[in-house]
């Protein structure tokens, strides 16, 4: 559950790797624009999850902490946007920012006592947080409409200018996901990122070097919550409907799969994992009843043969190429 890669500087030789996933994301956006709305929608979900997992990676990958409860903040984002836009007539972008701020505040309130726990205890506490919010979305029907869910949520837009089609929205989602990765990477390489890497490496050592571990963990938790909230909010605007199941345990399992498959603690791992896990089941749909088996087998094989995640493949190839170059 801890970070596997806790570095914060990259050798110049590896910088090209930052360009190729971004170019890949742009190509997927183009593919989405040229494909059916169904493919575009699948890719849209992938990039929403990429935002969610980038935040989760911040807390789990960079800081080496465990959180099974980020779905709670996605729910705050999703329901917040739904309520503010459909009931109160807010502008979707304003609602997005407002719910991000609300999630940040909620993360401070929840994280302050919770982050005193470590390891499995922290994992269980955050899991409970996710379950509590999930229950609230079901039971507090006057606010959330329970299992009925919220319908009629407007698409993303600002001051009356809407993104009416899924293709328009996909472009916006790709841009936002890339922006999210860029911000996370910038933070990772900063003094703040160094503190998080130190915490992931050894909390006592980080403390002994003057790092306020509790404070930095809380900040990382808040950042992850803000990303999760943005993802929840974007989901609501992208689909136009939300219900409690969206933010259940499946979301936790799905995001963990994405994170570990793509490469926890890496810059692009969350996005790569999100795209693969979202697209792969659709690509295997032709296998009919064998679809789930094939999907699971591929996940297992990747985790066995590329334990650092798919984002680590490029450095593996680079090393292999260096080693096989003639002297």
């Amino acid at each position: 559950m801890t970070s596997r890669v806790t570095t914060f500087t990259e050798p110049a030789a590896l910088r090209w790797q930052s360009v190729s996933p971004a170019a890949g994301a742009a190509m997927l956006a183009v593919l989405g624009l040229l494909s059916s709305d169904y493919v575009t929608t699948v890719l849209g979900f992938a990039f929403i999850y990429a935002i969610f997992c980038t935040g989760l990676n911040f807390f789990m990958g960079y800081t080496g902490q465990a959180s099974f409860g980020q779905s709670a903040f996605a729910a705050i984002g999703g329901y917040g946007s739904a309520i503010l836009c459909t009931d109160l007539g807010w502008d979707p972008v304003l609602a997005l920012f407002a719910t991000m701020a609300l999630s940040g505040v909620a993360a401070v309130i929840v994280g302050y006592p919770t982050l005193r726990l470590r390891g499995h205890y922290l994992a269980m506490a955050t899991f409970a947080l996710g379950l509590i919010v999930y229950e609230i979305t079901i039971e507090w029907t006057s606010l959330t409409q329970g299992y009925m869910g919220y319908a009629g949520i407007p698409p993303l837009g600002i001051v009356g200018f809407e993104l009416p089609t899924v293709k328009h929205q996909l472009v916006a989602l790709v841009v936002l996901a890339l922006f999210g990765v860029a911000v996370a990477n910038r933070l990772r390489r900063s003094r703040f990122g160094r503190a998080l890497a130190a915490i992931a490496g050894s909390e006592p050592a980080a403390l002994a070097l003057g790092i306020d571990v509790a404070r930095y963990k809380l900040i990382a938790f808040v950042i992850a919550a803000i990303y999760a909230s943005a993802a929840g909010s974007l989901f609501a605007h992208f689909v136009g409907f939300i219900s409690p199941e969206v933010f259940g345990v499946t979301m936790v399992v799905q995001s963990f799969t994405m994170l570990y498959l793509g490469g926890i603690g890496t810059v692009w791992g969350p996005m790569i994992g999100a795209v693969i896990v979202s697209v792969l089941p659709e690509a295997l749909r032709g296998l009919k009843e064998m679809q789930d088996i094939a999907y699971s087998a591929i996940l297992i094989l990747v985790l066995i043969f590329v334990p650092r995640g798919l984002a680590g493949l490029s450095s593996l190839f680079a090393r292999f190429r260096r080693n096989t170059e003639p002297l």
């Binding site: 596997r4 890669v5 806790t6 570095t7 914060f8 500087t9 003094r191 160094r194 503190a195 890497a197 130190a198 490496g201 050894s202 006592p204 050592a205 980080a206 002994a208 070097l209 003057g210 790092i211």
Partner: peptide, 18 residues
């Protein structure tokens, strides 16, 4: 208590955090 996966440079940079 070293950060085993970090390079020597990165370990020293964390040391200079303050």
């Amino acid at each position: 208590g070293l950060f085993a996966q970090m390079s020597v440079r990165e370990n020293l940079m964390v040391g200079a955090f303050l």
